[in-house]
């Protein structure tokens, strides 16, 4: 008895027999040509500017700070604004340092305690890259345990070092491969949104209702 796998392959081969494609496989060089990629993002300042502009246009809130101490202050203000008390953290050292400086918040590891994660007010994570073209955060699941902390709480605060912002989607994909393609690569662009009822845009239907990005100018 043939398995489904063999049967599907046999059917594909039978139907493709004698088919001459007009298209030869693209060579790497052509495949990597970045059609539609925006230009002029070589300078860091231009990348930060575009990242901020595009992310803001999709309801992301961007805060630019000079160092980790300022990042802590901004995080304190964000928590106060939303009345957040219980805060989930990823296990990134920078996240621990910045959020750890806030003694009045109750923090916990969001990857360890699912029950508290479902109840908490806010999640703080890092992001491995930003994408200037699309105002996107790039999260590699092997770099940090931030899969659930960036997703389950109603507010997500992401810490991004401005040196990690790459110009375009293509460079972000190349970085993902360079990182060895972890089990999950997440691209996040703004808060969760839906238009499924009468096309009225509502944010926060399943994922975070609010996305804050704290951009740290690290050098």
């Amino acid at each position: 008895m043939s398995t489904a796998r063999d049967a599907v392959f046999a059917s594909i081969r039978k139907n493709l027999a004698g088919v001459q494609s007009a298209e030869t496989p693209l060579d790497r060089g052509t495949a990597a040509t970045r059609l539609g990629a925006p230009q002029g993002l070589d300078e860091r300042a231009a990348r930060v500017e575009r990242f901020t502009k595009v992310l803001t246009s999709v309801d992301g809130r961007v805060h630019r700070v000079a160092n980790e101490a300022e990042a802590s202050e901004v995080l304190r203000a964000i928590a106060a604004e939303h009345g957040a008390r219980l805060v989930a953290l990823s296990d990134a050292p920078q996240v621990q340092r910045i959020a750890g400086a806030l003694a009045d918040l109750e923090t916990f590891d969001g990857s360890r305690d699912r029950a508290r994660l479902l109840e908490c007010d806010l999640g703080v994570t890092g992001a491995q890259h930003g994408i200037a073209e699309t105002g996107t955060l790039v999260l590699f699941s092997e770099s940090e345990r931030h899969r659930l902390t960036s997703l389950v709480p109603p507010i997500h605060v992401a810490l991004v070092r401005s040196s990690t912002i790459v110009p375009t989607l293509g460079e972000a994909l190349a970085e993902a491969r360079r990182a060895g393609l972890p089990p999950l690569v997440s691209f996040i662009t703004g808060p969760s949104r839906t238009g499924d009822i009468e096309l009225t845009i509502v944010v926060g239907v399943h994922g975070p209702k609010t996305l804050h990005v704290i951009l740290i100018d690290d050098d």
């Binding site: 999950l184 691209f187 808060p191």
Partner: peptide, 21 residues
């Protein structure tokens, strides 16, 4: 949209039992 809010690229299950996912 220039990009939808989320893209998830899955490559295999988690590497260690301590990981998420």
């Amino acid at each position: 949209q220039h990009l939808t809010s989320y893209q998830s690229i899955f490559t295999g299950p988690k590497a260690s039992p301590d990981d998420e996912g």
